[in-house]
Amino acid sequence: MSGIIGKKIGMTSIFSANGKYIPCTVIEAGPCVVTQVKTLEKDGYASVQLAFDEKKEKHTSSAMKGHFEKASTTPKRKLVEFKYFETQKNLGEVVTVDLFAEGDFIDVAGTSKGKGFQGVVKRHGFGGVGGTTHGQHDRLRAPGSLGASSWPSRVFKGMRMAGRTGGDRVKIQNLEVVKVIADKNLLIVKGSIAGAKGSYVTIEK
């Protein structure tokens, strides 16, 4: 599965050729440098490690400096491993947004925005308590019953309750590539992707 690392720039809308108004996400994708190649013989599985986004040398540890030097590249901020890359890649090779073409369907994974401690209505889509009659005046968004009483005399594991929401890795599948602007390393996809502006995403084909 071929892939690339990108950065979410933001969203806009464009009119397509057939007059449809489509919402689009703009992603700055690559250029990425191959910093490590894992092989089936040596590592037990085949993968390619890509590096993206410049970083200052003074912010790089000596160990990482050596790692980047092996691929004869400058220090990078984000490293991601892609398993079973479709084409053979060598150390130091550059992967660009040319990997994708207009009309391709891609998967984009990012880290969703953190929402903090949230109740069950927002976190799990509970309906809340329907009405405000029969004494239900102060529990409109309450979870309701957690289970039966004397059996099982406990709350089952995995019961959906309130808690930390967002900040998870979310992959959106089958997003259509609307446009590729190769000279600016931009990828424009139809629809939205997870995460804040400026956050890193991995794009897979």
């Binding site: 720039i9 933001g10 806009t12 009119f15 446009k179 600016k184 424009i188």
Partner: peptide, 15 residues
């Protein structure tokens, strides 16, 4: 608005 987003809008939409 980020400059890259503005660039995309200038490229892809007719004012």
């Amino acid at each position: 608005m980020s400059t890259l987003l503005k660039f995309v809008e200038d490229q892809l939409s007719v004012k």
